[in-house]
Design a protein around this nucleic acid. Structure first.
Lengths: 249, 249
DNA sequence: CGTTCGTTTGACGGATATCAATGATTGTGG
DNA sequence: CCACAATCATTGATATCCGTCAAACGAACG
């Protein structure tokens, strides 16, 4: 790139929280994987079952330990999913993008949430109670199949991620993790992909099963080699192809 | 126990393959998590949709790469799930016990199986086509919810396993893996828990993300300390409590 | 009995965790 | 607007775990 950029390439998000309007909600729902293929009427029927909530940046949607009573579908914004770690901290587990579901499906109705959800930006989410969820599944069998597909895909992804984490060097794991994140929420900027996520070294360390120092060293090396460039609240993959090669070994 | 046993504590399985009889099938189905709470008539209706197959020891149920056309529910026996590794080998991913489902739900109908299933013992499995599965879900919404719970639980378990594998020493990971396996298919023998699974060092290594040598060393140490004892086709946890303490660190 | 496969043990080097110190960035209160 | 504190990032030195290479051993199988 130009090599003289002095400002961060971040777009500041400083809007006020808001509940998103009906047309947007319907658009999001009709594009969400869970409800693909449903008729407009069905989408509207489902929409009527859901409550809308707007959240400010950094607001907590639900907290680990609280009873899991609702599922959420993100309409706009970004939400991070955090899991309490042993030493009283929190580690980033996932980042949710619009159209995706979050909330503790496993714990629904029975036990406590294993994790916390907090917004990264101003966000709007649709909320569905456990009872409402069951009702939707009963009424729309096609949705149940889609949800099942989603869960199966997540399971498969999780198992693949596990295998990635198990073997390989720290560099490979960091590279693979960055690529996964980029695939999910990267924004293309010419050749490079920009990750507008406040990703601390500790977050990356927890995700790759290593320490903050090792992550820092690895990123320094990658930066020297011109593969990535980083700032405090962003990360850019300047050579994704090369990064992929590194991830594969 | 008697303390003077010189032979391996294994029960030989040398029965002939067979398709299990209807009463057994119904018993298995009514105890399977997916169909819990269904009426006898519903169970029978589902049973009629399924085909029964008997398998000999070591027989392949389905092979990685083949199109994923069926789901299976294990009625009797043990089935191992293997995933092809990069170097042309196979690594053990999971062991299925009666009542549990196996088969590539994620790939159903669309893509190819990511893994292979092979019997560890003479087994009997119920087979359900992708179409039949969708049909069952449509007809019995309660089953869809149970399946969803199952998938969610598996996803949660997978993510926890991932976190376990990510951090910690080889000893901790091996201990945790042994405990997980024991919880799934261990047979209590007084204080100790017996794992009647042909578990090679390579299998354990792949599951814990390390090498056969490291696993061997670790098990030798644990054996010296009286925590486990191993044979060629079995593993026994002689002090599960201590092993759990090791796993936690 | 020899072959093969899995296991065990040793020696060694490299990757990486740990400890420690410094530098950079952000946010805060004056 | 500035100084300060707090947090995060970076870098270095050192110890150690563990992966790699190598060899011996044992069990199963024909």
């Amino acid at each position: 790139m130009d090599g003289k950029r002095r400002t961060t390439p971040l777009a500041r998000t400083c809007e006020v929280p808001h509940a998103c309007p009906a047309p947007l909600r319907l658009k999001v729902l009709s594009h969400a994987p869970w409800f693909a293929g449903l008729s407009a009427e069905e989408i509207e029927a489902i929409d009527r079952r859901m409550r809308v909530s707007g959240y400010a940046e950094g607001e907590t949607v639900y907290r680990a330990g609280a009873p899991a009573t609702h599922l959420f579908i993100l309409a706009t914004g970004r939400v991070k999913v955090l899991r309490p770690s042993l030493d009283d901290g929190e580690v980033l587990v996932d980042v949710i993008t619009p159209g995706a579901m979050f909330g503790s499906l496993a714990a629904l109705g029975n036990s406590a949430c294993p994790d916390t959800a907090r917004t990264l930006t101003v966000s709007c989410a649709l909320r569905l109670s456990a009872e409402g969820f069951r009702e939707v599944l009963r009424r729309h069998p096609g949705v149940a199949l889609a949800v099942l597909d989603d869960m199966a895909a997540r399971l498969e992804a999780s198992q693949q991620a596990m295998r990635r984490l198990a073997g390989g060097t720290v560099e490979q794991r960091v590279a693979a993790t960055l690529l996964t994140l980029a695939g999910k929420l990267g924004e293309p900027r010419g050749d490079t992909v920009l990750l507008q996520v406040p990703l601390t070294r500790s977050d990356l360390a927890a995700m790759t099963g290593t320490t903050t120092e090792s992550v820092s060293r690895t990123l320094s090396r990658l930066r020297r080699d011109g593969v990535v460039s980083t700032g405090r609240r962003w990360t850019a993959l300047t050579d994704p192809a090369r990064l992929a090669r590194i991830a594969r070994g």
